[in-house]
Simulated scan of single mutants.
Amino acid sequence: MVNPELVTAADLKLMQGLAQHVTASRPELVNSDAAFGELAWNWGRRHAGEGAHGPRRLWFSGGELVAWGWVWPPRQARFDDGSVKEIPDAYLSYQVRPDHAGLVDEVIAWYDSTAAGTERRVAPSATDGFALERWAAHGYGTDPESLGDTGSWTQLNMRDLAEVEQPALPDGFRFRTADEAGAEAAVRAHVDAWSPSTYTAESYRGVRQAPGYRSDLHVLVEAPDGTMASSTIVWLDEVNRIAQFEPVGTHPAYRRQGLGRAMLLHGMHLAREAGATRMAVVCLGAPGHPGARGLYYGVGFRMFTRDAPLVKPAG
């Protein structure tokens, strides 16, 4: 079955189901951008905004989804500070079930035909030797931008939840849920942490529609003056009992006060109460991006796997 349409909520559930299958059988092959929570976040935030409407293709066998590809096409990104960025290349997010690995050639061929004429990027798992061979055979090589101290590659970090330290906030700060804080404050918290950002109220509505979103697992830290100083969303994969933080951010004026650490610990307690036994989070892995990695390592995460960014020139 082939259907080059846009990603719907129903498609996303199928894609998350495949992510759960791969996580259960070959977790080292899960691409950072194809994990259960990452899929929900990317679909939700792009549902109505920048990069939202790239084409997708689904491959089925015996009525089950066994592979998918989702192209983020060249686009124009508009930021909250009024700036506009042209993104001239295409990016592919994809996943193939390990027992149907041969389909990666069909995924590549579809991507090349869909994004013909543009530079094409993709980031398969660095441990997926078969896929890396097939991408190379189709003319994809290591992305130069991913190399060096400030490279763009990402790593998936994991830790178990058997024992989690109790969180400690500075005096006057408190944890809130998204429903308690309200939609406007939840959006503002994200934009403040990531500005310049493409995130909007409409993006947040998309996130809330994403399968797996739970407002009781959308955590914020409120400062004494009412500012939402930090925020994160916990996405729970109930099948594998793994929860993922995505995104994680703190307002620049409130950094280095221990808020991110306390929020992560609080989120892990909530995830454990919801049934999770392990926790995941993605970050940039190159040496020149130590901030987030140091925060995550400081609360017990360690790298589980990483991606291998590839690029193919336009043509």
Rank of each mutant, 00 (worst) to 15 (best):
E184L: 12
R208E: 08
V207K: 02
R205G: 08
A193H: 01
V221L: 10
T200F: 03
S215N: 15
P224L: 06
T200N: 07
T198A: 15
S195D: 14
V221N: 12
V187M: 15
S215E: 11
V207C: 11
H218I: 01
S197Q: 04
L220M: 07
R205H: 07
E202P: 07
V219F: 13
Y213E: 02
V191T: 13
L220P: 01
Q209Y: 06
T198S: 09
E202N: 08
S195Y: 14
A193C: 06
G212Y: 03
R214M: 02
Y199S: 03
A186D: 08
V187P: 00
S203H: 03
E222R: 11
S203T: 07
D192H: 08
T198W: 15
S215L: 08
G206L: 11
A189E: 01
Y213K: 01
H218N: 05
A193E: 00
V219W: 05
R188G: 00
A201I: 09
Y199I: 09
R208I: 11
G206F: 03
T200W: 08
A193T: 02
V219Q: 11
S203R: 05
W194G: 08
H218A: 06
T200I: 03
V191S: 02
L220S: 01
E202K: 12
P224D: 02
S203V: 04
R188T: 11
D216F: 06
E184I: 07
H190A: 11
G206M: 01
E222P: 04
W194L: 15
A210H: 04
W194I: 14
Y204T: 09
Y213I: 00
V191D: 01
T200M: 12
A201F: 09
R214Y: 10
A223M: 12
G212E: 04
T198L: 14
W194Q: 15
A201G: 14
A201S: 07
A186Q: 10
T200R: 14
R205C: 03
W194N: 05
R214C: 03
A210G: 14
R188N: 06
S195V: 15
Q209F: 07
S197T: 14
W194P: 11
D192I: 03
A193Q: 02
W194E: 10
S215K: 11
